[in-house]
Structure formats: C-alpha cells, structure tokens
Design a protein around this nucleic acid. Structure first.
Lengths: 126, 126
DNA sequence: TACATCTATTGACTAATAGAGAATAGTGTG
DNA sequence: CACACTATTCTCTATTAGTCAATAGATGTA
C-alpha cells in the first residue's frame, strides 16, 4: 500500500480513506509545543486536542514519537502522572526553557508561512 | 553533516548556515503548481521566483526533482524551449488538466492550513 | 476468574522523502 | 582554450513518516 506524499493531492477527494497532506505533519511539532505550553498535558489528551485543530488524521504513534523525540532534544520534559488514571500510568509533558526558545523560532516560521501562503492565494486569484 | 528536520527549530537563529523548516518543503509543490499555472516557466526561472516567495533556501536539485516527479504524475507537462537560450536547452513546464484538479485540492489544503496556523497563533497570544 | 473494553504508550519494520555534491552540457567572453 | 554563467540531471545516504503489533493498567460484566 503506497503511502505517497508527493502525489497526495491527487487522491484527496477521490480514492479510499483520505490521508493528510505533508503540511499537516509539518505543523504537528509547533502545534504540540503550543498546546503543551498552554497547559501541561499527556499524549492521549494531545491526540484529542489535535483533532479539534483539524490535525486528527495523524496516527497516534506519529504523535507519541514526536513527543519522545522532542523530549530527547530537551524541548519538553515529562513526569509520570501521580493522580488517579483510568488506565496505565501516563506521561505529563511540559515545556522546558529551551522549549520556549524553540517555540519562538517556530512562531517566526509560522508567521512567514502564513505570509507565503497568502501571497500564493493572491496570485492564484488574479 | 546532520540535516535534521526534527530539531530544525533549535538552530534556526543560532548555529551556522540557516536551513529551512519542513514547512518550506511542504509548500514547494503547490507553489510550483501555482506559478506554472500563472505562466509556463522553466525550472531555473522557478528557482528564482521561489526566492521572492521566501522559499529560496531550497536546493536546486530538490526543485528539479519535484518538477520531474510532478510530470511523471501527469500534473505538468514539459516541452523543450525552441527559442534562443543563453545556455543548454531548457524545459518549459505547463499545467495539465489533471494538474488543475490537483491544484484545487492544494488550494483547499492551503486554506485549511492558514486556518490552523491562525488558531495556533491566537492560542499562544492569550 | 476469565474476558472484553477502554485508556495509554512503546517498538519494530519498511517505504518514501530530502539534502548535498558532483556530473553534464550549451553559450558567450576575454 | 579557460572561465563564468545558464540549466538540468544523477547518485548516494540520512532522515522521516506510515502502519501494525505489542504491552499494560483499570474497569465492568458474565
């Protein structure tokens, strides 16, 4: 089963189950950082919150992996949740100081991206 | 030399030469389609035009490869330029009918992305 | 207690993409 | 001819992403 990325835009409305575009994946990282900064959360919650952002097509393991990798990089830190849980112990993630800095870079990038997309949208309308 | 993507946001303002974010790469495909639709062009020109969009950090081979792959997919078509050139013959790309459809999908995706980013920006300001 | 179900997270395997550098090649200029 | 500039292609390898399966605690229920 091909999981094309290049070529994503062909099957978006056509074929079987709809997959997300590469853009979706690219936004995952800042989205997680922003939500974690808002309020420390665990992966399962973040998974649901991504849904409400329209990034809900991402496979859980992609999200968990991203979280683990960002922790290795020192952008976020996790502690085991001591409160009662309806399941196995879960990691609560919070932003580190380094993560704050990284998030600032990401904000600049998001701004630039907004700008670029807007330019593209204008160009196509004329 | 590591060409990290995950981890991009660390070195953006810090280390050596600045690389682009994954977002930049994700936008390349629709950007090319839009510019080609505006006016058929060859790769070298597109390369320069990307610059003015703020996507100038992309390596030429990435851009040429993307063009070739989009041609294989049937989204664009190329003819050798018959006019005089100041160099070797060059391919002029133009959008196909299929490419028009793909571009529409991309436009939806760009809209959605604008939306998501805006939501994220709002959330971080409060 | 055996079993299903829901909450949570992790691991392993492989396909696909991206980044870099070098190769190829035509044209014009000193 | 050597060099610079225009233009495109190729190859090699690092990195990322997608999928599936495994692990595991808690809760309910037959």
């Amino acid at each position: 089963m091909p999981r094309r990325h290049r070529g994503w835009a062909m099957g978006a409305g056509g074929g079987g189950g709809n997959r997300h575009s590469p853009l979706t994946v690219s936004i995952l990282e800042p989205a997680l950082l922003i939500m974690i900064k808002e309020r420390p959360r665990h992966g399962y919650t973040l998974l649901a919150d991504l849904e409400s952002l329209g990034l809900g097509t991402l496979h859980p393991s992609v999200v968990y992996r991203t979280l683990r990798e960002m922790e290795v990089l020192g952008w976020i830190r996790s502690d085991w949740d001591t409160g009662q849980t309806q399941g196995p112990p879960r990691r609560i993630y919070q932003l580190t100081d380094q993560g704050e800095g990284v998030l600032k870079n990401w904000q600049n990038e998001l701004d630039k991206t907004q700008d670029t997309i807007q330019q593209l949208q204008k160009r196509i309308q004329s």
